[in-house]
Nucleic acid binder design. Structure first.
Lengths: 110, 110
DNA sequence: GATTCATATCCATAAATCTTGATATATCGA
DNA sequence: TCGATATATCAAGATTTATGGATATGAATC
């Protein structure tokens, strides 16, 4: 993950509809959702959603796969992983206690 | 952390200068840096940097503290913690294996 | 209190972004 | 092949955002 890639990802998430899409897909898990389902769930017009999905795709935050007439979108956990790693790079240099709370944030029930 | 707060933070980080500032401050650790030092380090004009620091401040990603004539800025790890938690909310619902790579991303040497 | 230093605010312009109607592409079923 | 369905692309208008010059504020020093 380089600076430009991270910027694409952060800018992609810094917009309401796209952040909602990403969170929806994170919750949807490995099954993801069809493009149409996403648009309907968030009450956004088809072409607007398509444009927003394209932004998330370019940013590496979601993947997609055609299934007949529909297209399934899935959160790309590898993409978000790279982003978080980039954000916290060198966080521990000299101050271990500084970033501990951040690590705890993701301590879910996995 | 609610949606609007998360949007502020992500939009703040989705801009080159501000992302560089945040990473610089993460690396600087608990000591942080003076506003002028930051501007000089990143080769950005004083008033532009001041505006960008104000955005990061409003987004809860940095804190500041006046020290005589200068003002020290420090990364707000609690702010970034809340943001990451919001992004990954409910990530494990039914698919523990899905988010494990994300957790591993932050496994630094703390 | 005048001057200097560090930072913030105001304002105008330029650039980027979002949304949307219209339309194109791709797939399926008849 | 034709029509229907699902999604993507195009182009334009509206809104937002970033930058930088000028200036204001706040704090130290003399």
């Amino acid at each position: 993950m380089d600076m430009n890639h991270a910027l694409d990802a952060l800018a992609a998430l810094g917009q309401k509809t796209r952040l909602e899409v990403f969170r929806l897909l994170v919750k949807a898990g490995t099954d993801g959702m069809h493009a149409g389902e996403i648009a309907e769930a968030l009450n956004v017009r088809q072409n607007t959603m398509s444009a927003n999905l394209a932004v998330l795709l370019r940013a590496g935050l979601v993947r997609n796969e055609r299934e007949g007439r529909t297209i399934r979108y899935v959160a790309d956990m590898e993409g978000i992983r790279g982003l978080l790693a980039f954000l916290m790079e060198d966080c521990c240099g000299g101050n271990p206690q500084m970033c501990q709370p951040v690590l705890d944030a993701l301590a879910c029930e996995c």
